[in-house]
Amino acid sequence: MNRSGVSGGLGALMRSAAITGGVAAGIGAWALAPRSIIESRRNKVPAIPRVKYAHRGLHDAGSGLSVGTVNERCAYVDLARRCAIKAGYADESFAGPVAPENSLASFAAACVAGYGIELDLQLTRDGQVVVVHDSDLKRVAGDPRKIKDLTYEELKNIPLFPAPAKSGDAVAVTRGDGKWDERPEGYYQHVPLFSDVLDVVGGRVPLIVEYKFDHYGWDDAAEELMEKGDALLQAYAGAYVVESFHPGAVNWYRKHRPSVNRGQLAENVAFGKSDWREWMCGLLAFNWLGRPDFVAYDWRGGDLPQVRFARKLGAKTVSWTVRSSLEFQRSGEYFDYMIFESFVPGI
């Protein structure tokens, strides 16, 4: 073959590669793209309020309290207790946790301190929308029963972190008698109704509301949670945005409530180490389904190509969960908003 033939073949190959690369880039941009500015304006979607968001409220027992520096943790717990007591929960003499995670006291404390709030929604056996993170109560109360198997009346009898909790995310110290169905004496906090949380917050600070699921399927219970949670939010006058790890929940808001600011939660997971859909969500490959206004990503992943690209395409970015000033410094340049705990950031 002569040189011109070789040159022509290489040129054709390069053109083909360029076209293929362009198509791939176009598909990638389409998949990761957030809601368009035109659609956002048409639906009058409010921006995310620019505050820092306290993870599961401002709490003195629960998630993340073994991370970061001792001084920062102590300052955070002290602030949570002082603000909860100022809001009327317990008093200075109470030795146990005053404001455990995802409790009315922790949300009241965040309001007193002036922080926004991130919280999680699930359904009880009797169809009540409650605020709780885990699918069961083992970590937060030492009770292995699942939220979906308990009524709200039963949940009211189960103290969150009923004794001085072990550090961080360790299993809570259980009640000594193990009688979960008997209302204990004295001060304690329990899993609250979402309606009661909204009453306590009363529009004083903005909310990031997560719809919580323990799998990626979609059934009647998932639909019920979406409908009931949204009904409560429609009746609420305060500022809020919604988010979920489940792309179906984000898509639900796209279809049913386009005026609500919605976000896709995600984290970077290794292929083959989890449900393949979780891996795909980590790549933001399902953004096309929900067309989120923002991406809430593990703070360690801010520099990942998919997060940077989604932000370049117009998505706002929210970091979770930042637990020290050092983590904030490392992640701050990649995110527009922050969900925090275990240290006290500036307002």
Score class of each variant (00 low, 15 high):
I147Y: 08
A163C: 14
G127L: 01
N102W: 03
T174V: 11
R139H: 10
V171Q: 08
A109C: 10
V129I: 05
Y89C: 06
A87E: 00
A109Q: 02
S106M: 05
P162L: 12
A141W: 11
L137W: 05
L150A: 01
E118I: 06
A141I: 12
Q122T: 07
K156S: 03
G142Q: 07
R125L: 14
G168F: 09
K166M: 11
R145M: 10
T124H: 01
D143Y: 15
P144W: 10
T174Q: 14
P164S: 12
D143G: 02
G96Y: 13
Y152G: 11
V112R: 05
A170F: 13
K86F: 03
L119H: 03
V131N: 05
D149G: 13
N102R: 00
P164W: 08
S103Y: 04
G176Y: 11
L121F: 03
G168L: 13
R145N: 11
A170P: 01
G142S: 07
L137R: 09
L160C: 06
G96W: 01
V112G: 01
K179G: 04
K166E: 11
G96Q: 12
A109G: 09
A113G: 08
E101S: 15
A170C: 07
P159W: 02
F161L: 00
V129H: 07
K146F: 11
D177V: 06
E153I: 08
K86Y: 03
L104G: 13
K146Q: 14
V171D: 11
N157F: 01
A90T: 10
H133E: 09
E101N: 11
L123T: 08
F107V: 08
G96C: 13
I158C: 05
Y115N: 10
I85E: 04
K138T: 14
L121C: 06
S135N: 12
S135H: 14
V130E: 06
F107R: 08
A99E: 05
A95Q: 15
G178Q: 04
L160W: 03
Y152W: 12
T174P: 15
L160V: 03
E92K: 14
N102I: 02
K138A: 12
I158G: 00
G176D: 12
A105D: 10
G178K: 12
A99H: 01
L121N: 12
S167D: 12
D91H: 01
D177A: 08
K166V: 10
Q128E: 15
Y152E: 08
V171S: 11
S135W: 05
R145P: 05
F107K: 04
K138P: 02
L104F: 06
A110S: 15
Q122V: 04
V129M: 07
E101G: 06
L121K: 02
T124K: 10
E118N: 02
A95V: 09
A172G: 13
V171R: 00
G88P: 11
S103K: 04
K156W: 08
G142V: 06
A110R: 03
R125V: 01
N157P: 00
S106T: 03
D149A: 14
T124Q: 02
L150W: 02
F107H: 14
D120M: 04
Q122I: 07
E154N: 05
